[in-house]
Design a binder for these strands. Structure first.
Lengths: 173, 173
DNA sequence: GCAGAATAGTTGATAATGCATCTGTTGTAA
DNA sequence: TTACAACAGATGCATTATCAACTATTCTGC
């Protein structure tokens, strides 16, 4: 029962399992459903979020798609060139920008969503509704766990920096 | 109860949940545990597989790490330069190559594995043993589902190509 | 045993990504 | 109000990934 702490069984290691499933679904969906439309998985994530949650600031899009802000900026530029989204200055702030689906983008997403559902259905074939509920709930929980772990870490770091700032003397790096 | 087929609720969409969890764990582990050793997540996947499953051919490493073969080739080259792995001609085939951990690589992995376990533990905090078992089993099942979907598709494509090859005439692209 | 297909691996050209940095804007504390 | 920090976004640059093409082996059917 007791596992050796420096031995790793990847077949039972959650991050490995998660990565494998995520990759295989994304790869297949990307090649079969997105590539014919000239879309990458990264682009799909952007338009899927816009379809699901409505127009967004780029910074929020970055958060929601787990994409770096600079990558997202260029991603949006590409999607604009393709005519799938628009980028307009925000009404309430001149430094913010609002990204939304164009009519063309809405049409495309509406076509892709049923296909995306098919891939999800294929992935969860043979899994009962109860198990599926557990699966999704655990994934949401795991995400929240890591999220708050991260917050705790950032706060801790900021506190440390604050203290060292207090102790800092000129010429003392 | 009936959901609109062209509307997508990402918070309940498995590929989205999986991607978010995979990304947040990998990002944190990468920054906090791997970067100090000059390792990327991609490199970690390689050495973790080697630690878990022993020496491998590159093609199998590519499969096990969900990495493209050409990417993996260069990844191994980098790991060799860092002294973490070795690449030797296979005993039974001159076109195959065997990648294994060096002594240095073994030491490094042995240090990282307990930390990797900690991250897994942080992710699954508050999830019962029963739920965890369901979670992992479902992920393995989903992977197998997509795997066999892919095989079916490849076989189908090969059959189609075979037929068009039969029908193909010279000068007919 | 031999021609042709399949396989393992590498490499070149190109594109995507991530980090640091920059600009411009907004929030905030004195 | 006025500095100054924090924030949103864009961009330069270096690194990395991707796809196709290529070399070198091995397998297969005849």
């Amino acid at each position: 029962m007791a596992k050796h702490p420096s031995k790793l069984d990847l077949g039972d290691y959650l991050p490995y399992l998660v990565n494998r499933v995520g990759t295989i679904i994304a790869d297949q969906f990307g090649v079969e459903a997105l590539a014919p439309h000239g879309l990458s998985i990264a682009m799909w994530r952007v338009i899927a979020v816009l379809a699901s949650a409505g127009q967004q600031r780029q910074i929020d899009l970055a958060e929601l798609t787990s994409t770096d802000a600079s990558t997202l900026s260029r991603l949006v530029s590409r999607l604009i060139r393709m005519g799938q989204v628009t980028r307009t200055r925000s009404a309430n702030s001149n430094r913010e920008v609002v990204v939304k689906l164009s009519a063309k983008g809405q049409t495309l997403v509406a076509r892709l969503i049923p296909i995306a559902r098919d891939y999800e259905a294929a992935a969860i074939a043979g899994i009962s509704a109860q198990e599926l509920a557990v699966l999704k709930r655990c994934l949401r929980r795991a995400y929240e766990n890591m999220k708050s772990k991260n917050v705790a870490r950032v706060e801790q770091r900021e506190t440390r920096e604050g203290q060292s700032r207090l102790n800092a003397a000129p010429g003392f790096r």
